[in-house]
Design a protein around this nucleic acid. Structure first.
Length: 830
RNA sequence: GCCGGAGUGGCGGAAUGGGCAGACGCACGGGACUUAAAAUCCCGAGGGCCGAAAGGCCCGUGCCGGUUCGACUCCGGCCUCCGGCACCA
């Protein structure tokens, strides 16, 4: 009845219509029944999407369409994470300005999203490189500075002397610059930080309330924050006025501390060196460790290296002198940058003590099975449990001993209880051009001065040359750097560091509600109505940094009373990556441009149409798992859509179209109607648990059932029509174009997208007969078709009638039977 | 090393709360249609054994053990792969 299925004829037409009718647009100023689904915030570094990304957008679009049909006022906005290093590198390599490069990429990616049939509310579009967006990064920065949440301190960076520029960790390969091959130096620069550690406890506690987040991500965040309770202990050091503070999680083992170890970067090291007879050695050692790249120093199995400073400290518990060492494994960022070494109760300290012949003094009995342990126990002078300072109180090894030890330390003034975190403050400074300028001015008389709000935004200058070997290109712009001090009016220099792009992405979801608002960063009233984000979809690679920073900034805005929520994302779904064979390595790896194993959706769309690509992508497997891309499924997906076309076309012959179409609604209890309603139930359920692949499988079975019903006749036109309509409605989220085209050809007005999601009649969705499995001693011996709700005695009677089943327990003693209604009967015999 | 996830036919995968293992699809084999091919449609198929056939039996969800009437599913131990973190005091 209908001519053949031609995706290339129908898809562009519907894409235009959807855009013209503004089908997706939601007025965020209006409250009521909202489902605010947030999809993606892509980074337009590559000019083309690949199918690996494609799955994310298709899944988001399918869920958006499903939510619209379920009557939710869904908002599917799109924004662009537009700043970042690749754009700057492209500028250096090809001379194209990062802005031009980025905007061109955004344009191409938009075209592709459009070609895939993804509907976004483009009226809410934003890009972080737009001054109207990044001015609010600057505004937020100034507020955080006022509150002490933004501050400056020195931090080491990777410096490439050849490129005269700062390198990201990933640009350092084997201690050398990826590009020039020069040996990378570690330099100390004064940089800007956000004090995320102030929020560590709140970020940790908040996780407990995120009941719709996976335990997987919550566990990763908990481990990243790494809260540990312990104590600071003060050690008097020979020749130092101030005591040395160490952090330990095991203050109860203080008695066994036989040495101290400092990070070579520790601020007390120069003083120690000055008093030490080994000054030259210390300086050489510090220089050597500092030269090790961060990556190498933190690498697996790195050799522990230390140097005895020759200076002595005093263990406050024993009063004995212990040596002070420098050690490469002590990190300056964690705890206090200094540790007490307890070789008897810490494996790493033991290894170190062994290598350098340091004393081992046990505090607790240790495992006798361990030969080292047995030796230690012999050295233990008493036959009980020693807690601290050589005094005995019978407290067992454990949390109680730790709190006893902390109380003791505090009474004696030897230390105090403290909570330590693994989390470090967020370094936001980047020595790059393509980012948000940090709104600060360096004045020779007034110091570091904030840019006044009235002068925002501090715009990126355009007169910048990207010649590569010149450090931060921003420094080259006279017009940008030269300014006057807002305080004294004298000549001053502008800050040339720009912000980490994670700053942009940590609050963008709020900005979708008022993207063009020049008055304020967020619209508090709209946030109240629409937030939190109901469904956040993102890759698992963002489980830690992005999601933690977004939670942090949301709390900062909460404390400023700008938003009423502390947690920005109520439900989180993390998809897995699409992998494919990398021809270079011969291994199956995640699909990415840098690995050169991408597959373009453009070619596939040209060959099969967008719906086929969408269907094949959704059918590949569960989206939370990683899946290997294979084109084998594409032809099958295309065949299925052709069958849908054929079947619905034949259904139209039976039922008529437009004015002539059947008007009676389907009634009664027929095989096809049961199929229809059971399929509604299955597909609805599958979408709600993010399993589009099983929804598609159910629709394939349903299409077959409808085709069979048409073949054999016997179903009423109304039942046929109900089935055909339902098939189109349920398939629409995955294959929107072909279903919309058929919907129109059947004579329905308007968009399927605005159609109500079909409702399953529970009486029809349940079958009247069920297959009861009969087991004997747990092994399947037969199947019985019985009425739903059949009793155990009925089932048993039927089983006895069945000769084949009966033969398995005839003449044997039945010891018990297990009956699960509508499912199974298990006869246990001796 | 630690944390998290996974392991099911030739392949992608299904089995939603302990109850028919292998849905759906790909590839494959056979058949129909065709002068022929493509396309399309139909049928078949986890492995082994018995049987001429109908059919029947045994084994089977990484490995070993346990709980249970019954285990892909729960418990203990191990192996492999993937992801994240890592001298974290």
């Amino acid at each position: 009845m209908f001519d053949r299925y031609h995706p290339s004829m129908i898809e562009p037409r519907w894409q235009r219509r959807w855009a013209d009718e503004r089908a997706a647009y939601v007025d965020t100023s209006v409250p009521g029944g909202e489902y605010y689904m947030l999809n993606m915030y892509p980074y337009p570094s590559g000019s083309r999407l690949h199918v690996g990304h494609g799955r994310n957008y298709i899944l988001g679009d399918a869920l958006y369409r499903r939510m619209r049909m379920a009557g939710r006022k869904a908002l599917n906005p799109m924004g662009w994470d537009a700043f970042g290093l690749p754009a700057e590198n492209a500028a250096i390599q090809s001379g194209v300005h990062p802005r031009e490069y980025t905007l061109a990429n955004i344009g191409r990616m938009k075209e592709q999203l459009y070609a895939l049939g993804c509907l976004y509310d483009w009226s809410k579009e934003l890009a972080s490189c737009d001054p109207d967006y990044y001015r609010w990064n600057q505004w937020l920065f100034l507020r955080m500075w006022e509150q002490g949440l933004a501050y400056r301190k020195t931090a080491p960076v990777n410096w490439c002397p050849g490129c005269r520029t700062v390198l990201a960790n990933e640009q350092v390969v084997d201690g050398r610059c990826e590009r020039s091959g020069d040996a990378v130096e570690i330099r100390d620069l004064t940089q800007w930080f956000f004090r995320v550690t102030d929020y560590a406890d709140r970020l940790l506690e908040g996780l407990d309330r995120l009941t719709h987040w996976s335990d997987r991500v919550k566990t990763m965040q908990r481990n990243w924050i790494g809260r540990s309770e312990g104590a600071e202990v003060f050690f008097r050091i020979d020749g130092l006025t101030e005591p040395l503070t160490v952090f330990t999680t095991r203050p109860d083992t203080l008695y066994g501390a036989t040495f101290l170890a400092l990070a070579p970067e520790h601020p007390a090291v120069p003083q120690l060196a000055a008093r030490s007879p080994r000054r030259a050695e210390i300086e050489t050692f510090v220089e050597r460790v500092r030269r090790e790249s961060r990556l190498e120093r933190e690498a697996e199995g790195g050799e522990k290296e230390g140097l005895d400073t020759g200076v002595l400290g005093i263990n406050p518990a024993t009063g004995e002198t212990i040596p002070v060492w420098l050690a490469n494994f002590v990190l300056p960022e964690y705890g206090t940058g200094a540790i007490m070494g307890v070789p008897a109760h810490d494996e790493r300290d033991f290894e170190f003590a062994r290598k350098y012949g340091l004393a081992v003094r046990p505090v607790y009995r240790v495992g006798d099975a361990d030969p080292d342990g047995a030796a230690m126990n012999e050295a233990l002078p008493h036959g009980g449990v020693l807690v601290h300072s050589g005094s005995w109180d019978g407290t067992p090894n454990g949390p109680e001993a730790i709190s006893v030890a902390i109380r003791w330390l505090e009474e004696k003034g030897f230390g105090r209880g403290r909570v330590g975190y693994r989390l470090r403050d967020w370094l936001i400074s980047r020595q790059r051009y393509w980012g948000t300028p940090i709104p600060a001015i360096h004045c020779p008389t007034c110091g570091v001065v904030p840019v006044p709000d009235a002068d925002l935004p501090v715009r990126l200058p355009d007169d910048v040359a990207f010649r590569g070997a010149e450090g931060n290109p921003l420094e080259q712009s006279e017009a940008f750097v030269k300014t006057t001090c807002p305080k004294c009016g004298g000549p001053a220099r502008r800050e040339t560091d720009t912000m980490d792009t994670f700053v942009d992405s940590s609050w963008y979801y709020l900005r979708f509600l008022n993207p063009a608002d020049a008055e304020r960063i967020v619209d508090t009233e709209r946030v109240e109505r629409w937030m939190p984000v109901d469904q956040y979809i993102g890759g698992i690679e963002h489980a830690i940094l992005h999601l933690l920073y977004a939670r942090f900034i949301c709390r900062v805005l909460y404390d400023m009373k700008l938003v009423s929520i502390e947690e920005p994302f109520e439900r989180l779904f993390n998809q897995g990556m699409i992998t494919s064979l990398n021809p270079a390595t011969g291994k199956v790896e995640k699909m990415s441009k840098s690995r050169g194993n991408t597959v373009s959706p453009d070619d596939l769309i040209a060959r099969y149409g967008a719906d086929t690509v969408r269907l094949a992508t959704m059918f590949i497997g569960p989206p939370e798992k990683e899946s290997e891309w294979s084109e084998d499924g594409v032809a099958g997906a295309h065949r299925f859509l052709n069958r849908v076309w054929e079947t619905v076309s034949r259904a139209a012959e039976v039922t008529g179209v437009g004015q002539a179409a059947v008007s009676a609604s389907a009634s009664g209890d027929t095989g096809l109607r049961r199929w229809t309603h059971r399929t509604i139930e299955r597909v609805t359920d599958d979408f709600d648990r993010f399993h589009p692949h099983t929804a598609v499988a159910a629709l394939m079975e349903f299409q077959k059932a409808l085709a069979d019903a048409l073949e054999s006749g016997g179903e009423s036109p109304a039942a046929i029509r109900e089935a055909a309509d339902t098939l189109l409605e349920l398939l629409h989220p995955v294959a929107p174009h072909v279903t919309q085209e058929l919907w129109e050809r059947l004579g329905h007005p308007g968009f399927l997208l605005d159609q109500a999601w079909p409702h399953a009649d529970p009486a029809l969705a349940l079958s009247t007969d069920v297959v009861l499995v009969v087991q004997v001693n747990g092994k399947v011996r037969g199947k019985l078709s019985v009425a739903r709700g059949a009793s155990e005695s009925e089932a048993m009677a039927r089983a006895r009638e069945d000769e084949r089943i009966r033969s398995w327990f005839e003449g044997r003693e039945i010891t018990r039977t297990v009956f699960v209604p509508d499912r199974l009967l298990n006869v246990v015999v001796r």
